[in-house]
Amino acid sequence: MSFSTVARDVRLGFVGMLPIALAAAPFGLLLGSEAVRQGLTPAEIGLMSMIVFAGSAQFLTVSIWTHPAPWAALALAAFLINLRHVLMSASLSPKLKSFRPSQKAFVAFLLADEIWALSEQRAAQHPLTPGFYFGTALGLYVIWLAATVAGTALGGILPAPETIGFDFVFAALFISLITGFAKSWRTIPVILASIAASLLFKSLYGGTGFILAGGLAGMAAAALLPPEKKKPS
């Protein structure tokens, strides 16, 4: 693969991620200001964004932070909230044929929800290349790190993302991706099972386990469908 093809893929991924990353920035600012309230320094929340790089896990752990840091409880919370990544990486795994093992190690490090979602969408239409993947990751990583650190200086003066509709950007992104994945009637029971299970789980238990519950219910619905006829090749 020539340099210009790689550069084109990096640019495609980066530009595709840019609006999503900019929508994530207000949440990064909020996280930064919340981190200061919980007694974390700008360097500490910056390190967390660099090393953990998982928005929902960071929000949750910062909200329960105490000093000295209860590392086992925080790690367990991060592990539980990120369990959905087991399914996400298993789904992405066969689409990484053109990645070297060392690149896959970095793919896993950067596998945030938005990056995974854009990569699955790309893989549904074209072979997924390292250039595209790391292009999307670069866009989110840099903006997320900058926003969380900048947020530490802005405590209290931020408008809530809801007031400018930014909270809905992720819902709208994910809805448009789901619309793209729904190519046949077989997707309908998957979606219905996922909605039912996630709503039920959330109303019973709260928290964030509803994502995993809905994901597993959708998978179960897919497994119960009659086997797909082989495409004539």
Partner: peptide, 19 residues
Amino acid sequence: QALDAVPAAILTAVVAPTI
């Protein structure tokens, strides 16, 4: 079949409460 359904299933679960 279940693994192929992961993208739609997980994304739907993420957004269902918001919708």
